[in-house]
């Protein structure tokens, strides 16, 4: 009995699996929004969009790396709130500001390393480990800041978030630097290669004699670093620290990575695509704001978008797997 397995053509093959086409789609959507909404293409508005996108794109670097290794990082909102809260509380206690900033970034790194330890050494599932550590960070932020916003940054600090040089906001420059660094690290160095290997075929890492655990810990540590940087940038934009300032950015960050083609099932995704996804999400929110839609309605649309993209992603992977199995059956028959 010979199984007649035909190889069905993938109807989504033009859009899926090709990051370049995906970014073209994003740009097309942006152009469409520009055509439909007045004031969208104004230079000041576009710079605003990029400034918002920077807070989404910078943690997205770490989240992309985590998602490549089949994990996720749900602690970004916690670190975005906790790091600047540490900075401002230490600054009010009289410690020199540069040292405060250093400590703030260090807390982000430590939080990330804690995540990595829980995931790699203890064996807790990534989403619950980062979810819990994020909530602990949020709780600590509220304890330190007594539940409310805290202001009082030094004068020059808010210039970083709101000022610009040669017309380009500092936020965008910082985003560019971080994204470039992340993309180079992930795409061109051997460590980046090993991260992809961790997501695709973990046994290769062990065969090379390296430790996947140490790599995982490092990945989440890097994620914590970038989340802290984003938190400090956000606080400088707002010139205040509020415990829940990072909540919407965390969801946008995950959406940006998914929109940018990073698969939930691990193994693929690039920093630049996630950054472009971040710009897309920020542009979408900006457009919906200009249209007068309430942020909660935006969340509704964003949630639907996330589910849609992940569903399509999973379905395509299943179809690919079935085609591969069909191919293997045919090979076995001959």
């Amino acid at each position: 009995m010979q199984k007649n397995v035909t190889r069905r053509k993938n109807p989504f093959r033009k859009v899926s699996g090709r990051p370049f086409v995906r970014t073209l789609v994003i740009i097309a959507v942006i152009l469409m929004m520009a055509a439909l909404i007045p004031n969208f293409l104004k230079f000041s508005n576009l710079m605003n969009v990029l400034r918002q996108a920077s807070i989404i794109a910078i943690p997205a670097i770490g989240v992309t790396m985590a998602m490549i290794t089949k994990g996720i990082d749900l602690s970004t909102s916690g670190v975005i709130a906790f790091a600047p809260m540490c900075v401002i509380v230490m600054y009010h206690a009289g410690i020199p500001f540069a040292l405060c900033v250093l400590c703030g970034i260090l807390t982000g790194v430590l939080a990330g390393l804690l995540n990595g330890l829980l995931i790699a050494r203890v064996g807790v599932l990534p989403f619950i480990a980062t979810y819990v550590s994020g909530t602990i960070m949020l709780g600590l932020t509220m304890v330190i800041g007594n539940g409310g916003s805290v202001t009082g940054f030094p004068k020059g600090y808010t210039q970083i978030g709101n000022g610009s040089v040669l017309g380009i906001p500092w936020s965008n420059i910082i985003m560019l630097l971080c994204v470039a660094a992340g993309a180079l690290f992930l795409g061109k160095t051997k460590y980046g290669n090993r991260i992809y290997a961790l997501g695709n075929n973990e046994s290769v890492i062990r065969m090379e004699g390296l430790s996947p655990e140490k790599l995982l810990i490092a990945i989440y540590g890097i994620g914590g670093f970038f989340s802290a940087v984003a938190g400090l940038l956000l606080s400088s934009q707002l010139s205040t620290v509020h415990p829940t300032q990072g909540n919407s950015y965390q969801l946008d960050c995950i959406a940006a990575c998914i929109l940018g083609g990073t698969s939930m099932l691990g193994g693929s995704g690039t920093v630049i695509n996630s950054a472009l996804g971040a710009i897309g999400i920020a542009a979408m929110r900006n457009a919906l704001n200009l249209l007068g839609l309430h942020p909660y309605v935006q969340n509704l649309l964003l949630g639907t978008l996330i589910i849609l993209i992940v569903a399509v992603n999973v379905l395509l992977k299943q179809r690919e797997k079935r085609q591969q199995e069909g191919f293997n059956i045919r090979r076995a028959d001959t």
Binding site: I72, L251, M264, L300, L302, G303, T304, I306, I307, V310
Partner: peptide, 10 residues
């Protein structure tokens, strides 16, 4: 977790 994250937002 990603489903319920999304439906939670919705």
């Amino acid at each position: 977790f990603i489903v319920t994250l999304g439906t939670g937002m919705i």
